[in-house]
Amino acid sequence: MIVQALAFYLFAGMTIASAVMVIAARNPVHSVLFLILAFFNSAGLFVLMGAEFLAMILVVVYVGAVAVLFLFVVMMLDIDLVEIRQGFLQYMPIGGLVGIILLVELLFVLGAWIAVPETAAVTGVPLPPPEQVPNTRALGVVLYTKYVYLFQASGLILLVAMIGAIVLTLRRRDGVRRQSISGQIGRRREDSVEIKKVPNRSGA
């Protein structure tokens, strides 16, 4: 129990600390790295709650895809830090307002939880109980049996989305030099090297 509590405080503390660093760091690349740290620690929190599937998804999707994308964008853009800092005070009130609204909404969610105790009874009991089946397995079992039709249909939709993106955007441009690997490997010495006898005192 004590180990769990310690782990919780470690993960929670690290999450908050790295979240603060995300907005406090001077270098945007550092911000993104702290964001990744925050994601990892939140994943740890999920594991502590017994939601190991969410933890994996958080790492795979957010760290693997979203954060790396951020990193790319940040490194690609030429960001002038001094310029960004200038408007800080100006945007402070709006940022604060958004923060307060978020806080109030969170309180509402908690309030509903307390005001209607049945909610917890209904939503808080997953089927099957997590002690018997790990939740990755539980999800997989319904996804590939009961909902296999919907699963396959979603796959087809994603396929169509991919085809659509390619149809609408892929263009073959002329004059683009491409690497032809088979051409490179298939090149023989005779094709590119010519041996000439050079007579004395006359040059090639």
Binding site: L150, I157, V160, G164
Partner: peptide, 23 residues
Amino acid sequence: LMSLYLGLELQSLSLYVIAAFRR
């Protein structure tokens, strides 16, 4: 309702693309 939505999206998504087919 779920299979309704997925069928509808599969159809619509394909139609959006072929509407813009002559890009």
